[in-house]
Amino acid sequence: DELEKRVKKIARKLNLSLDQVEEWLKRNNNDELVEAVKRLKKK
């Protein structure tokens, strides 16, 4: 979905793993995208 695409884009842009992106999003209080990261990690 759109949020998952955004997460992947962030990960690529910042050259981070999904775990690192998740931490980064949590620090930025971006719950919506944190949920998207969790969905991606399950895939």
Score class of each variant (00 low, 15 high):
Ala11His: 02
Arg12Gly: 04
Val21Pro: 00
Arg6Ile: 15
Glu4Met: 12
Asp1Val: 09
Glu22Asp: 04
Glu23Ile: 09
Arg12Ala: 12
Leu14His: 08
Leu14Gln: 02
Asp19Cys: 14
Asp1Arg: 11
Arg27Leu: 13
Asn28Ile: 14
Asn29Glu: 09
Lys43Thr: 05
Arg6Val: 14
Leu18Arg: 02
Val21Asn: 00
Ala11Met: 15
Glu35Pro: 03
Arg27His: 10
Lys8Met: 15
Arg6Cys: 15
Lys9Ile: 14
Leu16Gln: 02
Asp1Tyr: 10
Ala36Phe: 05
Lys42Glu: 11
Ile10Cys: 15
Arg39Thr: 04
Lys13Asn: 10
Lys38His: 06
Leu18Glu: 03
Arg12Ser: 09
Lys38Arg: 14
Leu40Ser: 01
Arg6Asn: 05
Arg27Trp: 11
Leu14Glu: 01
Asp31Leu: 14
Ala11Phe: 06
Leu33Arg: 02
Leu33Phe: 04
Lys9Asn: 14
Glu4Cys: 13
Glu35Arg: 07
Val34Gln: 07
Lys38Ser: 04
Lys41Tyr: 05
Lys43Met: 08
Arg27Ala: 13
Asn15Cys: 15
Lys42Cys: 15
Ala36Met: 05
Val7Cys: 06
Arg27Gln: 13
Lys42Phe: 05
Trp24Pro: 00
Leu3Asp: 11
Leu25Trp: 03
Leu25Val: 03
Lys41Ile: 10
Glu4Tyr: 08
Trp24Tyr: 13
Glu32Ser: 09
Arg6His: 08
Leu33Ala: 02
Lys5Gln: 14
Val21Trp: 03
Asp19Gln: 07
Lys13Gln: 13
Lys5Glu: 15
Glu32Gly: 05
Lys13Thr: 12
Glu35Trp: 04
Leu18Thr: 02
Lys13Met: 14
Arg39Lys: 07
Ser17Trp: 09
Asp19Ala: 11
Lys5Met: 14
Lys9Val: 12
Leu25Ala: 15
Leu18Asn: 01
Gln20Asn: 03
Lys42Asn: 10
Glu23Phe: 07
Ala36Thr: 05
Leu16Val: 05
Arg39Trp: 03
Asn28Pro: 01
Leu16Thr: 01
Leu16Cys: 10
Lys8Val: 14
Leu25Pro: 00
Gln20Met: 07
Val7His: 02
Glu22Gln: 07
Arg27Val: 09
Asn29Leu: 09
Val37Asn: 01
Asn30Gln: 15
Lys26Asp: 03
Lys26Phe: 08
Lys41Asn: 03
Leu3Thr: 04
Asn15Val: 03
Arg39Phe: 03
Leu25Ile: 04
Lys41Phe: 07
Asn30Met: 15
Arg39Glu: 05
Leu3Arg: 06
Glu2Asp: 12
Asp31Cys: 15
Asp31Gln: 14
Trp24Phe: 12
Lys8Gln: 14
Asn30Glu: 15
Lys8Glu: 13
Leu40Val: 05
Ser17Ala: 06
Ala11Arg: 06
Val21Ala: 03
Arg12Pro: 00
Ser17Asp: 10
Arg12Cys: 15
Trp24Gly: 00
Asn15Gly: 15
Leu33Gly: 02
Lys41Ala: 04
Val7Phe: 04
Lys38Gln: 11
Val37Cys: 15
Lys41Pro: 01
Ala36Pro: 00
Lys43Ser: 06
Val7Trp: 05
Lys38Thr: 05
Val37Phe: 03
Lys13Leu: 15
Leu18His: 01
Glu32Lys: 09
Val7Met: 05
Glu32Ile: 09
Ile10Leu: 13
Ser17Gly: 06
Arg39Cys: 11
Glu23Gln: 10
Ala11Gly: 02
Leu18Lys: 02
Arg39Ala: 09
Glu32Pro: 06
Gln20Ser: 04
Glu2Phe: 10
Gln20Pro: 00
Gln20Tyr: 04
Asp19Gly: 06
Lys38Pro: 01
Lys41Trp: 06
Leu16Met: 15
Glu35His: 05
Leu25His: 00
Glu23Thr: 06
Lys38Trp: 02
Leu40Glu: 00
Lys41Val: 04
Leu40Cys: 05
Glu22Leu: 14
Leu40Phe: 03
Ser17Cys: 12
Asp19Asn: 08
Ser17Ile: 06
Asp19Arg: 06
Trp24Met: 08
Arg39Pro: 01
Val34Ala: 10
Leu40Gln: 01
Leu16Ala: 04
Lys38Cys: 13
Asp19Trp: 07
Glu2Ala: 12
Lys5Trp: 14
Arg39Gly: 04
Leu3Tyr: 10
Leu33Cys: 09
Lys13Cys: 15
Asn15Ser: 09
Leu25Gly: 08
Leu40Pro: 00
Leu16Glu: 01
Leu40Ile: 08
Leu25Glu: 00
Asn29Met: 11
Asn29His: 13
Asp19His: 07
Glu35Ser: 06
Trp24Cys: 12
Asp31Pro: 14
Trp24His: 03
Trp24Glu: 01
